[in-house]
Write a protein that binds this DNA or RNA. Structure first.
Lengths: 107, 107
DNA sequence: GGTAAGCGCTTTGCCCGGTAAAGCGAAAGG
DNA sequence: CCTTTCGCTTTACCGGGCAAAGCGCTTACC
């Protein structure tokens, strides 16, 4: 018998996936296209981005809308559930501004 | 010329490192020894755990106290800065309980 | 006295997930 | 024309997280 499913554990696992938090933060600014999102996140590679987006769509956090195939135009936006992650991102932002300084370049 | 250091970007990078959030959550329950922490986190391998802890100590989020060498006894605890991450973890917990259900086992 | 278990890790391979780079088919702008 | 942009996919690579074993030592049990 499997051990009980813990939503918190699952959430931590989701949010610790590389780039997930960055993607959500970027989408909190508003819907974006694929490359636009990629630029907003900064440094993510398209394969990973597309994989993460699929995952987030499956989980109901992100919504993908294809507006036209040719020329390609796609919009990624947060679902209501995704929007609610703003609290999390804001908590991180507050903490970061209080506690993270530029790292000593001399190492 | 380097682009400006963004504390929020840095925080997201820190918190998306595998196991970091789990470690912090476990330490919010109180100080723990290495193996105790490992068990609380669940599934992390000791090499990774030790590396993450080093990192968190360097960043001033976690404090390591060696109480005795033999028998070995070490305590890891959150610094005040680390404690303040409770807001983040709580935001995640709230979100998780609202939005994450057990995944459909039939796929 | 033997021996098993616990402590806090480190070391040793291995393997998979994230990586850079290239590309594609169509449209739009210089 | 030629480049750029769009939204990706494909390919091949490399490093980080992985399981497993081990170490030096103490404590607990039989």
């Amino acid at each position: 018998m499997a051990e009980a499913f813990c939503p918190v554990y699952a959430a931590l696992n989701l949010l610790q996936e590389k780039w997930t938090l960055h993607i959500i933060r970027a989408l909190l600014e508003g819907p974006k296209g694929f490359n636009e999102l990629s630029r907003a996140v900064g440094g993510v590679n398209p394969a990973t981005l597309s994989q993460r987006l699929d995952q987030l769509v499956r989980l109901g956090v992100v919504e993908k809308r294809v507006e036209s195939y040719m020329p390609p135009r796609t919009r990624y936006s947060l679902t209501p559930a995704g929007e609610e992650l703003e609290e999390v991102v804001q908590a991180i932002e507050r903490w970061a501004r209080r506690h993270l300084k530029a790292p000593d370049p001399a190492r």
